[in-house]
Structure formats: structure tokens, C-alpha cells
């Protein structure tokens, strides 16, 4: 069953997802996982927020992955997000120079996460956004969402995803400007103010 016969398309069926569970903490997060921006880059932004459950309690065991283009809108093709030391096996982390566009952050005991990355540029017909993938104990299939940055009203109004949403739902995808290049983006998994989650087809 688990040797997939690729000669018959009807047998190439997807592997089901499972929860990341509670015990990934020593396996998936890595030092500097949220320090995506090259050191001292002028287009650096800080995004931060909380992940909440259906009762409004923060999740101390959620994992957030961010993926976005550079300020010029180009998709990075650079590896090295989790660079390792070949002699000790330890984590060297990013080299501080190259931009990989991808980061991984575990929420802390308060359910808070943050990342420093580069301000995403626009691509295609979309307003600029960061792609977000959320994992947690209790979440059998991860959730995709997007962080849009406030400011350019025309671009946000023309965005094909945002344009199709009712206003209060739309607002769950737009970060709040905290000044000085900082943005707040909370993720509500369930209930009042539930974040809009996405399904790609």
C-alpha cells in the first residue's frame, strides 16, 4: 500500500495529514527561525502576534511558518535558512546576508510569536502579502492564511482574495500598523474574529 505505483494515476493518491503533535519542539524550531531579514536591511519589518483557540486562550504550542517574496516581488531561491555546522552538527542559522524568504517560529508560553523579515513586494494581481502556514497540537491539517500589510488602499481593494470577502472577515487578513515598521497579526483558529484560512485548488 505504501509503495506508490506511479504507472497508474488512480493509485497516486495523497498521503493524509496528521497533527504536528505536542512534541516537535526539539525537532522543528531552530535558532533564528524568525530572523528572516538580512542584518541591517532597510526594508526590514517586524510582524508579531498571538495564536488563539476558540475560547480566546493563546496557544503555547503553535508553529508558524512564513514565506514571502523580497521587496522587489521576486521569489527567493536561496537555501541556507537552517544552515548547519558540519563539524559539530549545531545550528549556524542564516548567514545574515542572504534572504531565503522562509522562516519558522514556535509560539512562546504566552502564545506569542514574532518574525523580522523583508517587506514583501507585489506579485501578479495580488496586493503584497506574506504566506502563513500554521501548525499546532489539535490541528489535524495545517492552516494557510496570509498577512497583508496595511497602507496601500488601492492595492488592497484590487486584491482578488480580499475583494471577495465581507469586510469583517477581510480585516482578519490585514495586519495592524504598530509604527516603525512593526505590524501586529493575530491568528484566531476558531470563533469570534476567526481568521480567514485558505484552500488552494
Amino acid at each position: 500500500m505504501t509503495k506508490i505505483d506511479t504507472s497508474r494515476p488512480e493509485s497516486v493518491l495523497p498521503t493524509p495529514s496528521h497533527t504536528v503533535g505536542p512534541f516537535y519542539g526539539y525537532a522543528l524550531p531552530f535558532p533564528g527561525g524568525g530572523d528572516i531579514a538580512p542584518v541591517g536591511h532597510p526594508d526590514t519589518i517586524t510582524v508579531q502576534g498571538y495564536v488563539y483557540d476558540g475560547e480566546g486562550n493563546p496557544l503555547p504550542d503553535a508553529l508558524v511558518e512564513l514565506w514571502g517574496p523580497g521587496p522587489d516581488g521576486r521569489v527567493p531561491t536561496t537555501d541556507g535558512s537552517m544552515r548547519r555546522d558540519p563539524s559539530t552538527g549545531g545550528h549556524l542559522g542564516r548567514n545574515g546576508v542572504q534572504f531565503t524568504g522562509w522562516g519558522r517560529i514556535q509560539t512562546d508560553a504566552d502564545g506569542h510569536w514574532y518574525a523580522r523579515t523583508l517587506r514583501p513586494g507585489a506579485r501578479g494581481r495580488s496586493a503584497p502579502y506574506l504566506s502563513v502556514c500554521v501548525f499546532a497540537r489539535g490541528l489535524l491539517v495545517h492552516l494557510f492564511t496570509r498577512i497583508y500589510l496595511p497602507g496601500d488602499r488601492a492595492a488592497l481593494a484590487a486584491d482578488p482574495l480580499l475583494a471577495g470577502l465581507a469586510e469583517e472577515r477581510r480585516d482578519t487578513l490585514i495586519a495592524q500598523d504598530g509604527g516603525d515598521g512593526t505590524y501586529r497579526f493575530d491568528i484566531r483558529l476558531q470563533g469570534e474574529g476567526e481568521t480567514v484560512f485558505l484552500e488552494f485548488r
Binding site: 496557544l59 492552516l143 494557510f144 482574495l161 471577495g164 472577515r169 483558529l189 476558531q190 485548488r201
Partner: peptide, 13 residues
């Protein structure tokens, strides 16, 4: 999963 699943259907792209 009880408090950690969205109640709204996902928005298709």
C-alpha cells in the same frame, strides 16, 4: 481538535 479547528469553511483560491 475541539477548540482548534476553524468553524468557517476555508476560502478557496
Amino acid at each position: 481538535s475541539v477548540l482548534r479547528h476553524p468553524k468557517q469553511p476555508p476560502v478557496a483560491i
